[in-house]
Protein backbone atom coordinates (compact mmCIF):
# COMPACT_ATOMS: atom_id res chain seq x y z
CA UNK A 1 0.00 0.00 0.00
CA UNK A 2 1.37 3.40 -0.92
CA UNK A 3 0.42 6.98 -0.25
CA UNK A 4 -2.01 8.16 -2.89
CA UNK A 5 -2.52 11.93 -2.81
CA UNK A 6 -5.67 11.59 -4.92
CA UNK A 7 -7.54 10.36 -1.84
CA UNK A 8 -6.27 13.34 0.11
CA UNK A 9 -7.70 15.73 -2.48
CA UNK A 10 -10.93 13.76 -2.78
CA UNK A 11 -11.57 14.13 0.93
CA UNK A 12 -11.22 17.91 0.96
CA UNK A 13 -14.71 18.87 -0.37
CA UNK A 14 -16.37 16.93 2.46
CA UNK A 15 -13.86 18.10 5.04
CA UNK A 16 -14.14 21.82 4.36
CA UNK A 17 -17.67 22.30 5.79
CA UNK A 18 -16.58 20.22 8.78
CA UNK A 19 -13.59 22.48 9.22
CA UNK A 20 -15.96 25.43 9.27
CA UNK A 21 -17.98 23.73 12.01
CA UNK A 22 -14.78 23.12 13.97
CA UNK A 23 -13.92 26.81 13.75
CA UNK A 24 -17.44 27.71 14.87
CA UNK A 25 -17.25 25.39 17.87
CA UNK A 26 -13.85 26.80 18.80
CA UNK A 27 -15.14 30.36 18.46
CA UNK A 28 -18.15 29.60 20.65
CA UNK A 29 -15.92 27.99 23.27
CA UNK A 30 -13.46 30.89 23.16
CA UNK A 31 -16.23 33.46 23.70
CA UNK A 32 -17.86 31.42 26.49
CA UNK A 33 -14.44 30.79 27.96
CA UNK A 34 -13.68 34.50 27.92
CA UNK A 35 -16.99 35.20 29.63
CA UNK A 36 -16.41 32.45 32.20
CA UNK A 37 -12.81 33.48 32.67
CA UNK A 38 -13.85 37.06 33.33
CA UNK A 39 -16.40 35.84 35.86
CA UNK A 40 -13.81 33.67 37.61
CA UNK A 41 -11.37 36.56 37.66
CA UNK A 42 -13.88 38.95 39.19
CA UNK A 43 -14.87 36.31 41.77
CA UNK A 44 -11.19 35.91 42.64
CA UNK A 45 -10.69 39.65 42.82
CA UNK A 46 -13.45 39.96 45.43
CA UNK A 47 -11.11 38.15 47.80
CA UNK A 48 -13.95 36.54 49.71
CA UNK A 49 -12.30 33.50 51.21
CA UNK A 50 -15.03 30.82 50.77
CA UNK A 51 -15.55 31.84 47.15
CA UNK A 52 -11.78 31.98 46.59
CA UNK A 53 -11.44 28.49 48.01
CA UNK A 54 -14.20 27.11 45.78
CA UNK A 55 -12.72 28.76 42.69
CA UNK A 56 -9.25 27.49 43.61
CA UNK A 57 -10.52 23.92 43.87
CA UNK A 58 -12.35 24.19 40.56
CA UNK A 59 -9.30 25.61 38.83
CA UNK A 60 -6.96 23.05 40.32
CA UNK A 61 -9.22 20.22 39.17
CA UNK A 62 -9.56 21.61 35.66
CA UNK A 63 -5.82 22.25 35.36
CA UNK A 64 -4.90 18.91 36.89
CA UNK A 65 -7.13 16.58 34.87
CA UNK A 66 -7.26 15.73 31.15
CA UNK A 67 -9.65 17.71 29.00
CA UNK A 68 -10.88 14.40 27.61
CA UNK A 69 -11.98 13.32 31.09
CA UNK A 70 -13.68 16.69 31.57
CA UNK A 71 -15.55 16.14 28.31
CA UNK A 72 -16.65 12.69 29.52
CA UNK A 73 -17.84 14.24 32.77
CA UNK A 74 -20.05 16.69 30.86
CA UNK A 75 -21.24 13.94 28.54
CA UNK A 76 -21.83 11.08 31.00
CA UNK A 77 -22.08 12.61 34.46
CA UNK A 78 -24.45 15.50 33.78
CA UNK A 79 -27.19 13.28 32.29
CA UNK A 80 -26.79 10.97 35.30
CA UNK A 81 -27.69 13.87 37.56
CA UNK A 82 -30.59 14.92 35.37
CA UNK A 83 -29.01 17.46 33.00
CA UNK A 84 -29.12 16.11 29.46
CA UNK A 85 -27.55 18.55 27.03
CA UNK A 86 -26.74 16.43 24.03
CA UNK A 87 -23.16 15.89 22.84
CA UNK A 88 -22.65 19.22 21.09
CA UNK A 89 -23.73 21.41 24.01
CA UNK A 90 -21.99 19.20 26.55
CA UNK A 91 -18.83 19.33 24.49
CA UNK A 92 -18.87 23.09 24.01
CA UNK A 93 -19.54 23.61 27.71
CA UNK A 94 -16.64 21.32 28.65
CA UNK A 95 -14.30 23.22 26.35
CA UNK A 96 -15.57 26.54 27.67
CA UNK A 97 -15.09 25.65 31.32
CA UNK A 98 -11.60 24.41 30.58
CA UNK A 99 -10.86 27.57 28.67
CA UNK A 100 -12.35 29.81 31.36
CA UNK A 101 -9.85 28.52 33.89
CA UNK A 102 -6.88 29.14 31.63
CA UNK A 103 -8.23 32.55 30.63
CA UNK A 104 -8.50 33.48 34.29
CA UNK A 105 -4.86 32.51 34.77
CA UNK A 106 -3.96 34.66 31.76
CA UNK A 107 -5.86 37.52 33.33
CA UNK A 108 -3.96 37.14 36.58
CA UNK A 109 -0.74 37.54 34.61
CA UNK A 110 -2.24 40.43 32.62
CA UNK A 111 -3.37 42.31 35.72
CA UNK A 112 0.18 42.43 37.00
CA UNK A 113 1.24 44.33 33.89
CA UNK A 114 -1.41 47.05 34.15
CA UNK A 115 -0.52 50.52 35.29
CA UNK A 116 -1.71 51.07 38.87
CA UNK A 117 -1.77 54.83 38.30
CA UNK A 118 -4.79 54.67 36.00
CA UNK A 119 -6.76 52.74 38.60
CA UNK A 120 -5.77 55.06 41.41
CA UNK A 121 -6.92 57.94 39.26
CA UNK A 122 -10.29 56.23 38.77
CA UNK A 123 -10.61 55.66 42.51
CA UNK A 124 -9.69 59.26 43.17
CA UNK A 125 -12.44 60.35 40.77
CA UNK A 126 -14.90 58.49 42.97
CA UNK A 127 -15.89 55.76 40.51
CA UNK A 128 -17.57 52.76 42.06
CA UNK A 129 -15.64 49.47 42.02
CA UNK A 130 -18.05 47.97 39.47
CA UNK A 131 -17.50 50.92 37.17
CA UNK A 132 -13.74 50.71 37.63
CA UNK A 133 -13.81 47.05 36.66
CA UNK A 134 -16.06 47.64 33.67
CA UNK A 135 -14.57 50.84 32.32
CA UNK A 136 -10.94 50.87 33.47
CA UNK A 137 -9.62 47.43 34.34
CA UNK A 138 -11.33 45.10 31.88
CA UNK A 139 -10.74 47.11 28.68
CA UNK A 140 -7.03 47.35 29.44
CA UNK A 141 -6.92 43.75 30.57
CA UNK A 142 -8.53 42.42 27.39
CA UNK A 143 -6.07 44.41 25.32
CA UNK A 144 -3.19 43.04 27.38
CA UNK A 145 -4.20 39.40 27.00
CA UNK A 146 -5.32 39.59 23.37
CA UNK A 147 -2.27 37.73 22.02
CA UNK A 148 -2.76 34.96 24.60
CA UNK A 149 -6.46 34.81 23.74
CA UNK A 150 -5.62 34.19 20.10
CA UNK A 151 -3.30 31.43 21.27
CA UNK A 152 -6.18 30.07 23.34
CA UNK A 153 -8.37 30.03 20.24
CA UNK A 154 -5.85 27.90 18.34
CA UNK A 155 -5.62 25.56 21.33
CA UNK A 156 -9.41 25.25 21.28
CA UNK A 157 -9.43 24.56 17.53
CA UNK A 158 -7.23 21.56 18.30
CA UNK A 159 -9.27 20.63 21.37
CA UNK A 160 -12.48 20.36 19.34
CA UNK A 161 -11.11 17.13 17.86
CA UNK A 162 -11.73 15.51 21.26
CA UNK A 163 -15.47 16.10 20.82
CA UNK A 164 -15.37 13.38 18.17
CA UNK A 165 -15.21 10.80 20.97
CA UNK A 166 -18.62 11.95 22.20
CA UNK A 167 -20.06 11.66 18.66
CA UNK A 168 -19.84 15.31 17.59
CA UNK A 169 -19.27 15.18 13.83
CA UNK A 170 -16.60 17.86 13.55
CA UNK A 171 -13.54 17.86 11.32
CA UNK A 172 -11.79 14.81 12.74
CA UNK A 173 -14.89 12.65 12.95
CA UNK A 174 -15.84 13.62 9.43
CA UNK A 175 -12.42 12.34 8.41
CA UNK A 176 -13.13 9.09 10.24
CA UNK A 177 -16.41 8.72 8.41
CA UNK A 178 -14.66 9.27 5.08
CA UNK A 179 -12.00 6.65 5.63
CA UNK A 180 -14.57 4.21 6.91
CA UNK A 181 -15.89 4.38 3.34
CA UNK A 182 -12.71 4.60 1.24
CA UNK A 183 -10.38 2.57 3.50
CA UNK A 184 -7.72 5.22 3.05
CA UNK A 185 -7.18 6.41 6.62
CA UNK A 186 -3.67 7.80 6.16
CA UNK A 187 -4.48 9.99 3.14
CA UNK A 188 -7.75 11.14 4.67
CA UNK A 189 -6.16 11.92 8.03
CA UNK A 190 -3.37 13.79 6.25
CA UNK A 191 -6.02 16.01 4.71
CA UNK A 192 -7.57 16.47 8.16
CA UNK A 193 -4.21 17.34 9.67
CA UNK A 194 -3.50 19.73 6.83
CA UNK A 195 -6.74 21.59 7.51
CA UNK A 196 -6.01 21.92 11.23
CA UNK A 197 -2.52 23.20 10.50
CA UNK A 198 -3.90 25.58 7.86
CA UNK A 199 -6.54 26.96 10.22
CA UNK A 200 -4.04 27.54 13.01
CA UNK A 201 -1.36 28.93 10.73
CA UNK A 202 -3.77 31.43 9.19
CA UNK A 203 -4.99 32.48 12.64
CA UNK A 204 -1.41 33.06 13.84
CA UNK A 205 -0.52 34.83 10.60
CA UNK A 206 -3.60 37.03 10.71
CA UNK A 207 -3.01 37.81 14.37
CA UNK A 208 0.57 38.79 13.59
CA UNK A 209 -0.60 41.14 10.83
CA UNK A 210 -3.27 42.77 13.00
CA UNK A 211 -0.81 43.14 15.87
CA UNK A 212 1.74 44.83 13.62
CA UNK A 213 -0.92 47.18 12.26
CA UNK A 214 -2.08 48.05 15.77
CA UNK A 215 1.50 48.60 16.87
CA UNK A 216 2.07 50.83 13.87
CA UNK A 217 -1.03 52.87 14.64
CA UNK A 218 0.08 53.41 18.23
CA UNK A 219 3.38 54.91 17.10
Amino acid sequence: MTFDPAFLLQALPRLLPAALLTVEIALAATLLGLLGGTALTILRACKWRPVNAAVAVLMSVVIGTPLLVQIFVFYYVLPAVGIDLGPMSAGILALSLNSAVFVSEMMRGGLATLNPGAIEAAVALGLRPAAIWLRVVLPQLYAAILPSLIGEFTILVKATALLSVITVVELFRTGQQIYAGNFRPFETLSAVALLYVAINASVSLGAGLVERRLAARRV
Binding site: R44, A53, L111, A112, P116, I119
Partner: peptide, 18 residues
Protein backbone atom coordinates in the same frame (compact mmCIF):
# COMPACT_ATOMS: atom_id res chain seq x y z
CA UNK B 1 8.30 38.37 42.76
CA UNK B 2 5.58 40.80 42.07
CA UNK B 3 5.80 44.41 41.26
CA UNK B 4 5.08 46.46 44.35
CA UNK B 5 1.75 48.17 43.89
CA UNK B 6 -0.20 50.82 45.66
CA UNK B 7 -2.70 49.44 48.16
CA UNK B 8 -5.64 50.99 46.30
CA UNK B 9 -4.72 49.64 42.89
CA UNK B 10 -3.86 46.31 44.48
CA UNK B 11 -7.54 45.77 45.21
CA UNK B 12 -8.06 45.51 41.48
CA UNK B 13 -4.79 44.15 40.21
CA UNK B 14 -4.30 41.17 42.53
CA UNK B 15 -6.44 38.08 42.84
CA UNK B 16 -7.29 35.64 45.64
CA UNK B 17 -7.39 36.40 49.35
CA UNK B 18 -4.82 33.71 50.11
Amino acid sequence: RRRPQGRIADRFLSLDAF
